[in-house]
């Protein structure tokens, strides 16, 4: 009689698989899941980052955020982050698509132009933000100088509530639009020319070809860009930190900046934690919804 192995082959195989992913899993647990658990714990304490000791305060921080003075900050950060996200998504998706359509020619001149549009992505955000500080300066900036040449009044781009967010979007959009263009361009190349030839034979106009062929065929790319841009724009921090510092009067105080200022400026780790968890749940819900909706509307057939 054949001797039964101590461990079933299937179990052994699963164990080997687990061993292979274990190093990555350990990193994930230590650097991602453990901090999240810690964050949840801190949200029920009064820890201020400096103190060695802390006490559990029950739901105090949660009540502060959802039914206290923190609600005002939560709603403001939600509004500001949503405005920023819509802005960056529009620039990346619509701007990127428009540029891709424009630069969808493959000769030397267009290669150079594509490179010029894409290069800002490689410029460090901190350096770009400092340059934009001066470009948009009310008194000595080149934008207002150009405005003055055509008789327009000077605009306080960074210091005014109405234009501060536009300034941040100008900076981040300038860096992101080339990336959107490149992603769309690579997707456009992969669309079979058969579709366009058939449409041409049927007498379809350029607009019809775009809306009936190009746009649907690019939907997986659009979903990819939407999700990645959405997540990155919800996390925006550096451009806001350098360009506006969350101001003027909280008009650019995005979620991550608010969390940062609670933790590192005010030392209120308790409040920062509760806000971070609220942010996490929000992202979880929105991302899950996006995938749910996209299942019905994205065409993967190319």
């Amino acid at each position: 009689m054949e001797k039964k192995p101590l461990i079933k082959p299937r179990t052994m195989s699963a164990f080997k698989d687990f061993i292979c992913v274990a190093p990555a899993l350990i990193f994930l647990v230590v650097f991602t899941y453990y901090p999240i658990c810690k964050l949840v714990q801190i949200s029920f304490t009064d820890w201020n980052l400096i103190n060695e000791t802390w006490q559990y305060v029950g739901l105090k921080n949660w009540i502060w955020l959802f039914n206290g003075s923190g609600t005002k900050y939560l709603l403001n950060s939600l509004k500001v982050t949503a405005i920023y996200t819509v802005g960056e998504l529009s620039i990346t998706l619509i701007g990127g698509m428009a540029l891709a359509l424009i630069f969808n020619r493959f000769n030397r001149a267009f290669s150079i132009m594509r490179a010029v549009v894409f290069v800002p992505k490689y410029v460090a955000m901190s350096s770009a933000a400092v340059v934009f500080l001066w470009i948009l300066d009310k008194e000595h900036g080149i934008v207002n100088y150009l405005f003055s040449l055509v008789g327009l009044p000077a605009v306080d781009w960074i210091g005014s509530r109405g234009t501060a967010m536009i300034s941040v979007l100008l900076l981040t959009g300038w860096r992101a639009v080339g990336y959107g263009m490149m992603i769309y361009l690579s997707a456009m190349i992969s669309i079979s020319s058969d579709y366009y030839e058939a449409a041409a034979l049927d007498g379809a106009s350029a607009a019809q070809r775009f809306f009936k062929i190009t746009l649907p065929m690019l939907s997986p790319t659009t979903l990819f860009l939407f999700v990645t841009t959405f997540l990155s724009s919800m996390k925006v921090f550096q451009s806001v930190d350098i360009l506006t510092g969350g101001g003027p009067y909280r008009s650019t105080e995005v979620f991550v900046y608010k969390i940062y200022s609670y933790a590192m400026v005010d030392f209120r780790m308790d409040r920062a934690s509760v806000m971070a968890i609220a942010f996490f749940i929000l992202l979880l819900v929105v991302t899950a919804s996006t995938f749910k909706i996209s299942n019905k509307n994205v065409h993967y057939d190319s």
Partner: peptide, 9 residues
């Protein structure tokens, strides 16, 4: 993973 990145401070 995103939240990991959110610990911006």
């Amino acid at each position: 993973t995103l939240l990991g990145g959110c610990s911006g401070g």
